[in-house]
Write a protein that binds this DNA or RNA. Structure first.
Lengths: 235, 235
DNA sequence: CGTGCAGTTGAGCAAATTCAACGCTTGTGG
DNA sequence: CCACAAGCGTTGAATTTGCTCAACTGCACG
């Protein structure tokens, strides 16, 4: 049992701006502009969310699908004892809100100021019914999400060192390039993602640093010094 | 870090019988016979697998989809340090082998003597391209599996007591009825499913028993005596 | 009746958490 | 411009949890 985040105090400071959909601007996600992409953009609207704003809540009707245009999003669930488990971080180009059913099983918040492409699910589903390519894409997206989730499970049975190492490798792989990552999320976010406490995350990072595996020039910035050591930890 | 199963000795005793497909017999899964069901049965063949036989391996081409007709199946992955993580248990009526991509990410084995309906994935995908209802079904199945996997993640951040309690509740909910469950799997299987050791599982069960929350008349049989206590633990 | 396997139990230990204190940065108000 | 509060991150010490190693029981099978 661990404590993790209880109820976070800064959420309500920025309440979700339910602004009006604006016309989709130039899209700069990371995936190529395939037909599915284009459909999404035509059907959807880009919405801005300030840092820590809620994008949807745990039991909201799952009316929309979302794609990150810029910024970073986290999905999470609060357990009844107050702990928080983060389901995933979504970077530009990633889609989220794919759970089945009529209601979301997770909540979603903006980690940083974020722009999100929002598409009505029913529109997409209707389109999928007519266009097999769209249906296939929808299926693939979900299957990929499933695969990622299964990998998370493997993560969660490992030691703290292994979890942190895997996390760093994952984030580096998903970030622009090179051996350096700018982590957009707090230690608490990382801890709640990995199922650890902030203290353990912090300690693990310092221990990796003193082993010359990584460098931590500033708390949000990490440089990978010895990638093979990390890979060895990765299991 | 934990040890869990290293390499299990009894696997090779029963090698996978690659028997010839037999005509689908009367289907007795738990889901209703919708059109999708019927398609599956028409396209597929029921294959028998003896206890502990491998149904598919981790890097096998993901050529088929599977549905449990009778018996129980486990999917799992072996980590490079020898530990085993069980991805899930599949009871009659459940489908497995849904991961995306060309290769399976998990292996699958029969927990008990099992009959499995096997359907060529390409056949189903081709059908999905023509029939939107099938496509939708395929999507729904995957989305449901995703949801279940997300719930597993919540399980894995909890304490040993909570994990075992959740497991018992899950199995009871999925089993025929009543407050009693016949667990088809070994303690090792349970441990590798919950990310614990067999000792911890065993101790937790005895502790639940001495708290009068459950009864364990025989090691594979569990009676739930105080469901609300279990639910309280469930988080 | 002995062997092997599955499960339980116990004692010691290692890892991660809890509780607590402290430093650093940032933002705010006087 | 400075003082100070608040948030974030790090570090230390004590504690708890679950793991490791080991012994032992019950049971099935030859």
């Amino acid at each position: 049992m661990q404590t993790q985040t209880a109820i976070r105090s800064d959420i309500s400071r920025h309440s979700a701006r339910n602004g009006r959909p604006v016309p989709p601007p130039a899209f700069n996600g990371r995936t190529e502009a395939d037909p599915f992409e284009k459909q999404m953009q035509l059907m959807g609207a880009v919405m801005p969310y300030p840092r820590n704003a809620e994008i949807f809540g745990e039991s909201d009707p799952a009316e929309y699908l979302y794609k990150v245009v810029s910024g970073v999003v986290r999905t999470y669930k609060i357990l009844n004892d107050g702990r928080r488990q983060i389901g995933g971080f979504y970077l530009p180009g990633d889609m989220f809100g794919l759970e089945s059913g009529d209601e979301h099983t997770l909540s979603a918040e903006a980690v940083t100021d974020t722009k999100v492409l929002v598409v009505k699910r029913s529109t997409l589903v209707a389109l999928a019914a007519r266009d097999a390519a769209v249906a296939r894409e929808l299926y693939q997206l979900t299957a990929r999400e499933l695969r990622r989730t299964q990998e998370r499970i493997l993560l969660l049975i490992k030691s703290a060192q292994e979890r942190v190492a895997s996390f760093l490798l994952e984030m580096t792989a998903r970030s622009p390039a090179g051996n350096a990552v700018e982590l957009p999320m707090s230690r608490q976010d990382i801890a709640d993602y990995l199922g650890l406490t902030i203290e353990t995350v912090s300690r693990t990072l310092t221990s990796l640093e003193s082993a010359a595996t990584i460098e931590v020039p500033s708390s949000r910035r990490i440089v990978l010094r010895n990638r093979s050591a990390l890979n060895r930890l990765n299991g």
